[in-house]
């Protein structure tokens, strides 16, 4: 996986979390994961199709998601499964959207699909789930995990080369 594809997502996550959470944050563990994805808490998946394809997953435990939702809303929110799911999905959506904005301005064209909850304990095996980059953003209100698996779309590359 190319770092040029990953960096915009790291920058976007950093910016979205910093603005929404308004608390100290550091990037913790960073690793390559060749195994299928294993969900840690409440996870949302955003798929990308086009010149670049793959997916990103945001994964938070329920308590952290509720604290994140409250920070984003600027008020303490009541615990609700729906709110927690919505929070994780919207967080994934905002990070993907901001990163896609950067990549599009660099000349890549692709589509961001609406976030969906990643409910299974394990991700499907397959090329999309191999060589995922897993990173953890450590904040004072809990850890936010981001898992990215992206690649260039070869059919688009071949079409561009033949043009």
């Amino acid at each position: 996986m190319k770092m040029e594809l990953i960096q915009p997502f790291i920058n976007a996550a950093d910016a979205v979390l910093a603005q929404g959470l308004r608390c100290p944050m550091a990037m913790g563990s960073l690793s390559m994961d060749e195994e299928a994805y294993r969900r840690k808490g409440v996870a949302a998946l955003v798929s990308l199709t086009g010149d670049i394809e793959g997916r990103i997953i945001f994964d938070l435990d329920a308590e952290t998601a509720l604290r994140v939702a409250s920070r984003f809303a600027g008020a303490d929110l009541p615990e609700s499964d729906e709110l927690i799911k919505e929070t994780v999905c919207e967080l994934a959506n905002q990070v993907a959207g901001n990163a896609v904005t950067t990549l599009n301005d660099q000349g890549f064209h692709f589509r961001v699909h609406p976030p969906v909850l990643h409910t299974s304990e394990h991700g499907a095996h397959g090329s999309e789930d191999t060589e995922a980059l897993v990173m953890c953003f450590e904040t004072s209100i809990g850890n936010v995990f981001m898992n990215i698996a992206l690649r260039y779309n070869r059919s688009h590359e071949l079409a561009a080369a033949g043009a």
Binding site: G20, F72, Q94, G97, N98, N104, D105
Partner: peptide, 25 residues
């Protein structure tokens, strides 16, 4: 109001009648 704020998208929205664009968050 969208997290996807690249120029093509903004121009497309404005051309189709939107008055302005605000990026999320």
């Amino acid at each position: 109001v969208s997290s996807v704020g690249y120029q093509e998208n903004i121009v497309a929205a404005l051309q189709r009648g939107a008055r302005h664009f605000v990026q999320k968050p």
